[in-house]
Design a protein around this nucleic acid. Structure first.
Length: 219
DNA sequence: CCCCAGGCCGCGC
DNA sequence: GCGCGGCATGGG
């Protein structure tokens, strides 16, 4: 049964990897994972940094995102007011380590203009914010119970045996078969990212995969 | 040298 | 609506 399998996969991942503590909070010039999972709602300042880092993380290694955020922090630029004051070229130079720096500088500038109510529909109107970035902001910065789908999620669940294609289909799979609990969605997505890094890579390493008992291995 | 990374946009069809 | 090229640094 689909529902059982999705919960089972979650429990296996959690047992195997433990809590991931996403989204890491930026404090004292470094990112910290909340492994003890206090899970308090991020402050407005924290939500802003999460949102900016979600844009920087697009198709980019997280370590490079950290470098870019540290560059911004050293210039005291981790606030909407401060970022509004600098020009897009200067911003691009500071976020260089995150890659696509010209595009991302423009995307951040567009995000700074956003002044509507936080909702999926409104976030998607921002140039540079697509479905995954919008959902990441909603879930991790504002604790909306919205499941984040990324390339890893698609890869993993296609291998396990769900033959789905687009973002919407994958998201419905989780929304229809899990209780809408932001803590569950938070942890599940983070665990999937970890699985993709350790085992379910493009060329998979299946030997010690925690999901072997629920995977069809149709590779 | 290669490939990949916590995607998105603009375009052609 | 779908596929594809462009965007780009840093690590393995």
């Amino acid at each position: 049964m689909t529902e059982t399998k999705i919960y089972e996969a979650y429990n296996l991942l959690l047992k195997s990897f433990g809590r991931q503590g996403w989204w890491p909070r930026f404090d004292n010039n470094r990112f910290i994972y909340n492994k003890d999972f206090k899970n308090s709602k991020p402050s407005e300042d924290e939500a802003f940094v999460i949102s900016i880092s979600a844009i920087l993380a697009q198709n980019t290694n997280w370590k490079n995102v950290e470098k870019a955020v540290i560059n911004l922090n050293k210039e005291n630029l981790l606030s909407k007011e401060a970022l509004l004051k600098i020009d897009v070229g200067k911003l691009a130079g500071l976020i260089k380590p995150a890659g696509y720096f010209n595009q991302k500088a423009k995307k951040i500038k567009e995000f700074l203009k956003f002044n509507k109510e936080i909702s999926r529909e409104n976030l998607l109107e921002i140039w540079g914010v697509g479905e995954e970035t919008a959902d990441s902001i909603l879930l991790y910065a504002y604790n909306f119970p919205i499941f984040v789908i990324d390339a890893y999620t698609k890869r993993i669940f296609n291998r396990i045996g769900f033959k789905l294609k687009n973002y919407k289909e994958f998201q419905e799979l989780f929304h229809k078969n899990l209780v809408k609990d932001y803590k569950l969605f938070n942890e599940y997505h983070a665990l999937l990212v970890e699985l993709a890094k350790r085992n379910c890579r493009k060329v998979p390493i299946c030997g010690n995969c925690p999901l072997n008992q629920v995977c069809e291995k149709l590779i």
